[in-house]
Each structure stands twice: as structure tokens, then as C-alpha cells.
């Protein structure tokens, strides 16, 4: 891949991930925090692919998109209104 294109994409994705990670700590609604954490995992998967780690990209996509999100959603559903 073209090095300058990869660099631009990495700057874009990295900035998005850092901004999102700060927002996770401060957003009021816990559901939104869980959704934004899922977005961080999926962006990390694209970064893994750009770093030529194909197997890691597949694993991170399947884990971050479904399993981790669902586990935290389940925990939030079980806790109910106790914020």
C-alpha cells in the first residue's frame, strides 16, 4: 500500500480512536460508552490489517464487534437501574 496513504489513514483512525476513548470515560449514558468501545475495537482491527497482521485483524473484529460488546451489554441489562 502507498506509504503516504497508509500514514494518512493511520493518523485519521488513531485520532478517532483516541477521541473516542476519552469520550468513553465522560459520556453520561453507559450504553453509549459500550457502543463507542465497540467502535474502538473495530478501528483497531483496521489498524491491525494496515500493519499486515491479518489473523489478528480477524480475531479482533470477531471479538470486539460481537463478544465483548455483548458481554458488557448483558452486564448493563443485569444491573438494571443501578448506575
Amino acid at each position: 500500500m502507498n506509504p503516504s496513504l497508509a500514514s494518512a489513514l493511520a493518523v485519521f483512525l488513531g485520532g478517532m480512536m483516541l477521541a473516542a476513548s476519552v469520550v468513553v470515560l465522560f459520556v453520561r449514558d453507559l450504553l453509549s460508552a459500550i457502543i463507542i468501545t465497540g467502535m474502538i475495537s473495530l478501528s483497531a482491527s483496521v489498524l491491525f490489517l494496515l500493519m499486515d497482521a491479518t489473523d489478528v485483524a480477524i480475531t479482533e473484529a470477531s471479538i470486539g464487534a460481537v463478544l465483548a460488546t455483548l458481554i458488557f451489554l448483558w452486564g448493563k441489562g443485569k444491573m438494571g437501574g443501578r448506575e
Binding site: L42, S45, V66
Partner: peptide, 8 residues
């Protein structure tokens, strides 16, 4: 990515 993001 496409299949599992849909599942998520």
C-alpha cells in the same frame, strides 16, 4: 468484518 459487524 461485514458478517460480524452486522451481528454486533
Amino acid at each position: 468484518y461485514s458478517v460480524l459487524s452486522f451481528l454486533g
